[in-house]
């Protein structure tokens, strides 16, 4: 397994012949069809594709939220299907960060408490200097004691980004993180995500169908009908947009 060990040095997460099949017989749907893909450490990757292309499924299975039907999925060099429910939870807690489109925060906790929640759950002490660094990077220094309902949508997403970064995970998965935001606020969030990768050395994989959002990434992977159909490095919004049109979105 030379290739595997070589891969672990550079890839934060990868899949090998991953398939996810829902239903059986006539109603069988292949959400993922024999996907092999890797995401480089320290890079900002976007997964794009039309609705139903399998991009969310790819993310969920890679993050250990949903099991694969066939094939393997790795975080670092840990193969996910070998883990039981409890081990998966611990893996998510320690090595994976999440940013969802909406409902990212626990409404009863303050911004700061939401940010440190994964560490609280793991009963570990947050690295105070790092957390402060993250908070100032996302520009929330004066908002940490606010409750989610006292924050704007953009501020809430920034808290979500900060939470994902706070535990310095191996990889962060973001699912349409700007889907609910206006374009200016969305742009700010994407700036923060990009600077987290560039300045703080994090790894982020983002699912989106917004060409502008994808243009903030280092690399775009295109999915259609559960298969990887193409990829693009150093994308621009126009190039991505054109490519998507060719996929028939």
């Amino acid at each position: 397994m030379e290739t595997a060990s070589a891969a672990t040095s550079t890839l934060a997460a990868r899949t090998q012949n991953a398939s996810k099949i829902y239903g059986m017989g006539d109603t069988e749907v292949r959400a993922l069809d024999d996907v092999t893909v890797g995401f480089a450490r320290g890079a900002f990757t976007a997964i794009m594709g039309p609705s139903g292309s399998g991009k969310s499924t790819l993310m969920h299975t890679m993050a250990g939220l949903d099991p694969l039907t066939l094939g393997q999925s790795y975080i670092g060099d840990v193969e996910l299907s070998s883990l039981n429910e409890k081990e998966l939870t611990l893996l998510r807690r320690e090595q994976v960060g999440f940013i969802f489109q909406a409902f990212n925060l626990i409404p009863t906790l303050s911004a700061m408490e939401n940010i440190t929640l994964p560490m609280d759950l793991a009963k570990t002490k947050p690295d105070q200097a790092w957390v402060e660094n993250v908070i100032s990077t996302v520009g929330l220094a004066d908002r940490t004691s606010h409750r989610p309902d006292e924050l704007s949508g953009g501020q809430q997403q920034r808290v979500a980004v900060a939470r994902a970064l706070a535990s310095r995970p191996e990889i962060i998965f973001a699912d349409e993180p700007t889907g609910n935001l206006d374009s200016r606020t969305g742009g700010e969030i994407l700036d923060f995500m990009r600077s987290a990768v560039r300045e703080l050395g994090q790894t982020i994989v983002m699912v989106t169908h917004d060409a502008v959002a994808a243009s903030y990434s280092d690399r775009v992977v295109f999915l259609a009908d559960g298969k990887i159909v193409d990829e693009m490095h150093e994308p621009t919004a126009d190039a991505v947009f054109d490519h998507m049109k060719s996929l028939g979105d």
Binding site: K86, L90, R92, F100, N104, I106, P107, L121, A122
Partner: peptide, 14 residues
């Protein structure tokens, strides 16, 4: 349920 699901996603055990 969504709140509890979120907790599970970010690392709370059952």
């Amino acid at each position: 349920i969504r709140e509890l699901g979120l907790l599970r996603a970010i690392g709370a055990t059952g």
